[in-house]
Design a protein around this nucleic acid. Structure first.
Lengths: 206, 206
DNA sequence: CAATTTTTTGGTTGTTTGATCAAATCATAT
DNA sequence: ATATGATTTGATCAAACAACCAAAAAATTG
């Protein structure tokens, strides 16, 4: 109501809606034809708007991809974190992490496809690919996982394995499922999720 | 000596040399500026030749990338398979598989970077990304790994875990190391290799 | 309802792309 | 040395690209 409300959210209502529509169309485009072919006109076509409108709402193509990447990371991170934080034991948290990660990816395959396309294609101005950049800050999932594992070792729930290697193995196993279609075809998400939890449970046991 | 020898190898000597030079330049280009920016002129520049010469030796850009991908897969596969086949026990083969995979990747980071760039960007004519295509035929590493694990279970060396999930976990852990720079920075290849072998040894134990 | 700001479009810009061509060079064999 | 075929180049092509702009349209304000 107050005068400030107009610009309080830093964005007008309609501008924010348009930005989200464009990002949604970008997800669809990346999923369908990949980063290389995902031109502004292809995204605009899927959104039913002109290409210039994308340029109006985003500085350039890289800006659009960056914002979309952040958006995708935030949504998946908050979903997973919410489930993890419901648990009290380290074992419970670890199980929740694995199950939630796989469940979210499985529920939104096109979002995951878009995420992969961006991470493996976008580069910093000095040509460093995103998948090589990640500070701990940029890869919040790995940080969460490491915290769970460390906590479990400190409170005596877990055995004395190598933290980083165990974390990579778990993250790798999660990522591998969505990326590799032979596995996806052979094993259902539920089976994979259950079996991975079993396996990890065994691996962390004292 | 015979008349046939000229064309017996399917390729003239000089043509084969040129093709390898172009593929080597393509590796360097993919590593430096990524698939998106790897135009024919960028590859030609690094090879010190004209772009038309690439078109002369390869049908089109996709052909070049396909042949390079096969070349990269063959080289890494034969290296790893050779080490695996030296071993007689399933445990020995599994260890050799892990150590050789990491060692080869670590010894040829630019080749691995090029492989990743192609796999995550190249698409079939009907826009299916390569990393989703792979039949068992197209992913020989996964087939080898599964065979080792199955054999180990059949001859009683390994416990009774889920084959596909265990294989994904191992493959994921191997792939994760080269892809994630935080881990690469924190843990040396030797340490990672040793710890992963330990961890997997524990996971497959009866 | 008139003035003003935000939003949207169509059209234009200059660049870069992959591919093709005829012509030039090179190697080889006769 | 010359004829033949393989190799290489520079020039050129249309197509696609991201970015830009002036003007139209829509929404918001006074």
């Amino acid at each position: 109501m107050s005068k400030d409300d107009k610009t309080a959210g830093r964005q007008s209502f309609i501008a924010e809606a348009r930005r989200e529509q464009i990002m949604e169309a970008a997800i669809q485009t990346l999923d369908e034809i990949g980063y290389v072919n995902a031109s502004l006109s292809q995204i605009a076509k899927r959104a039913g708007i002109s290409t210039a409108l994308i340029s109006y709402h985003f500085a350039d193509k890289g800006d659009l991809m960056n914002q979309l990447l952040m958006n995708l990371l935030e949504r998946s991170t908050s979903y997973i974190l919410e489930r993890v934080n419901r648990e009290r034991t380290s074992t419970g948290k670890l199980h929740a992490f694995i199950v939630a990660s796989l469940a979210y990816q499985g529920a939104h395959p096109s979002r995951y496809a878009a995420l992969v396309e961006i991470v493996f294609n976008a580069r910093t101005p000095d040509n460093v690919p995103y998948y090589k950049v990640s500070d701990d800050d940029e890869d919040p999932m790995m940080r969460v996982l490491l915290d769970i594992l460390r906590e479990g070792q400190n409170n005596g729930e877990f055995a004395d394995f190598h933290l980083d290697v165990m974390a990579s193995m778990i993250q790798g196993a999660i990522g591998e499922y969505m990326l590799s279609s032979p596995v996806t075809r052979k094993v259902s998400l539920e089976t994979y999720s259950d079996e991975l939890v079993k396996m990890v449970t065994r691996a962390i046991q004292k």
